[in-house]
Amino acid sequence: MDIVYFDELDSTQTYLIEQIKSKKLSAPIALMAKRQTAGVGSRENSWEGGEGNLFFSFAVNLDDLPKDLPLNSVSIYFSYIMKEVLEKFSSNIWLKWPNDLYYFKHKIGGTITKKLDTVLLCGMGINLKKNSNGFEALNLNIEADFLLESYLKELENYPSWKQIFSKYALEFEITKRVSAHIQGEYKSLENAVLSQDGSLIINNKRVYSLR
């Protein structure tokens, strides 16, 4: 996958959406910015930061994704692959359902996805170094572009959803210790049941990630 590098963007995700819509860029493609001044997180939250951290978005064709991947759970899929890449450099990293990356008890990154016709876009922000966005950092001594290249290399193997889910399901007990924003409310996940398609059953109601 080709990578286009920028010194600064308002938001890699917003920029990539505009470029895909205008057909100036086409999937598969990735964008990375050294600095992001108006990054978009889940629930319209911001994710900004300076040089040394990782801000990127990529677009892939739906036909290239694993056939067994539920589109409602692509955030889990993309995030878990990043979690596995980060584990090569640091331990105690886990994925909070469905799209937040944590280091011990601290959020250090997150994922947002969007479908445009036959293209799926994913944006990620990872705090590798101390940042001004209010979240903690991994403080890893690795370059952001190297981490991105490592991630895309793993992503392009396109492991099946079954492979990813089987590993995430074993770690889901960690997520049950916390709460999450679900349908506009902050809900405990203590009694949540993780389904095969990545959705949760909470109080007999099925909830999808939709991030």
Rank of each mutant, 00 (worst) to 15 (best):
D7H: 10
A33S: 13
F146N: 14
L95R: 11
K176Q: 14
T175E: 00
K34Y: 09
I164E: 11
S26C: 05
N127S: 08
R35S: 10
M82V: 12
L95V: 11
H181S: 01
L9C: 06
E8V: 08
L25N: 11
G123A: 09
N203H: 13
M82L: 15
I201R: 11
P98A: 13
F104D: 05
L147W: 11
D7F: 02
G49P: 06
T111R: 00
D63E: 14
G41F: 06
L138P: 12
L121Y: 10
P98K: 00
S26K: 14
T37E: 09
L148W: 13
S57K: 05
K129A: 08
Y5K: 15
L155D: 02
L155Q: 08
K129H: 06
G109L: 04
D64I: 06
I29M: 10
K23F: 01
D64Q: 14
S199R: 04
V85E: 10
S42L: 00
S132P: 00
M1P: 12
F78T: 09
G184A: 02
D117Q: 12
E190Y: 08
D117R: 12
S73E: 03
S199Y: 08
W161P: 01
P70K: 02
G41C: 03
T14E: 13
G123N: 03
L101H: 03
D64E: 15
W97P: 04
F146T: 10
F6P: 03
K153N: 14
N99F: 05
L121H: 08
Y102M: 13
W47Y: 08
H181I: 11
G39F: 04
V85D: 04
L25T: 07
L210Q: 13
E44C: 01
F172T: 09
E143N: 14
S150A: 15
